[in-house]
Amino acid sequence: MIEVTGIKEIIKPENLVYKKTKIMTDNTLSYCPGCGHGTAHRILAEVIDEEGLQSQTIGVSPVGCSVLLYNYLDVDIQQAAHGRAPAVATAIKRLLPDKFVFTYQGDGDLAAIGTAETIHACNRGENILIIFINNGIYGMTGGQMAPTTLPGMKSSTSPYGRDVKTMGNPLKMTDIVATLPGTYYVTRQSVHTPANVRKTKKAIRKAVQYQKLDKGACFIEIVSNCPSGWKMTPVQSNKWMEETMFPYYPLGDLKTPEE
């Protein structure tokens, strides 16, 4: 049992097991408890820090829950209109080819309103990193159906479950961009367990290297949760994600460089 009076003795450098990475600002994250966005930000920040990229990085934030990405990462960031981040990033990279340029986008942003920008930036082989947070729902606007919402899955605009006959099928954008000659590295990961966090971080680090080598578009899907939109507890949401999302969106590399 820890005595309350002993708390000061516990907070000491030698007892430190976890700390904020330098690239994260002191601003409080606005995400719901248990949401994957925070973890995804964190590992992206860690890679930027560990690779010494702060002064080289220009990020593009989307419209969606992560619109305020610029409040959390201590790097130069442009906030883009809904779906247009890949077009914005295209110009940044073309005009500042030596910088590390990434977009961070949700599934509504990337796979609905921004489908054209995504496909064309990938197809042109823009030398950028696209991080795609697929939570199968429009989180920010209150849980409406997304292009990635699973068949039968309920949302505020598919209250009886997604009927693929009338509402279309879930769109596997990652599979699509993997077929394009302009993409170099395409992978699907998650951040719901420490092991998965490590894998995703490794993927981001690879993408950074490939961008340095001018290899073309790198595309990392992170299958993630939305406890609020899914109306679940964080723990339930992670379990549901494993059981229901992963069979449809299997984790793993879709396109890797021949090495």
Partner: peptide, 13 residues
């Protein structure tokens, strides 16, 4: 749409 957003990206640089 893409073109004007490219302008946004470039102008912001």
């Amino acid at each position: 749409v893409a073109a004007i957003n490219m302008v946004y990206g470039g102008a912001a640089c």
